[in-house]
Design a protein around this nucleic acid. Structure first.
Lengths: 134, 134
DNA sequence: CAGGATCCAAGTGGATACTG
DNA sequence: CAGTATCCACTTGGATCCTG
């Protein structure tokens, strides 16, 4: 598919709606994916530990995010048959590979806050179309 | 803020809900941001050119995305006072800096399609919680 | 051509309560 | 503890029509 494009040796093009790589990009475009993968990049973690690290995430979103990551082969889930339950999550090889990139984005977000806040202030007096959306 | 955390020399922590870097990360977690910034990384482009490159984006989402990027200082918008209208968009220095990272993610998405498709197939027989969400 | 204005269907995600 | 289930407010984003 699309292998006739010389710029795309792998035959995938995320700019195309029907391309599988587009759905991968879509999966990655979630703030919770960034943060959960980021939290797991420190090592194997339990559900509750993740919930505490990723501030503001609800149990529902945490579970949902972990399930998607597991489905796509980025996270391994291990259940211990004990009471009370104990479940641990860990990045796979593929997940660790991705985590490097995502952490760079996260670091970038932290590093460039001043410029962006400044830009927003400039744009603010007062809002145009961008006001509604975050 | 948060400057008492030795791991965060910049004093920002995207894991914290109220931290400005969290809102930056939130802004970046959009498939359209990835693709529009990606399209602009090839150079200055007109509205219509972007619409054609980023398959499936509606005029509304394109404009909205561009406005957010402009507001945050990642994109410059230049209007030519001619008829019919001509508007061009271009990445700023900060935008080009970001584009490098985002393009890596996009390339990653394209490169790892096979593994992810395989993982999804394994997970499929048949769906658990991850089925509903993309 | 660029994009504003509406309308609306569907998805997202938060809050809360409950269970093995 | 690690979820699941439910309800619901809000947002997202597509479709459509309109204008300088």
């Amino acid at each position: 598919m699309y292998s006739n494009d010389p710029d795309k040796p792998f035959g995938y093009d995320a700019f195309r709606r029907e391309c599988m790589s587009h759905t991968v990009l879509e999966m990655l475009s979630s703030k919770w994916v960034y943060l959960v993968v980021g939290a797991l990049s420190f090592g194997r973690r339990r559900h509750g530990e993740l919930a505490r690290k990723v501030e503001g995430i609800t149990p529902k979103m945490l579970t949902q995010t972990l399930r998607v990551l597991e489905r796509d082969g980025l996270v391994l889930r291990e259940v211990f048959p004990v009471i009370p339950p104990r479940v641990e999550y860990e990045l796979t090889e593929l997940g660790r590979n991705l985590a490097g990139l995502l952490n760079e984005i996260r670091a970038w977000s932290e590093r460039h806050v001043p410029e962006i806040v400044e830009a927003r202030k400039q744009a603010s007096p007062d809002s145009e179309g961008a006001s509604a959306a975050l």
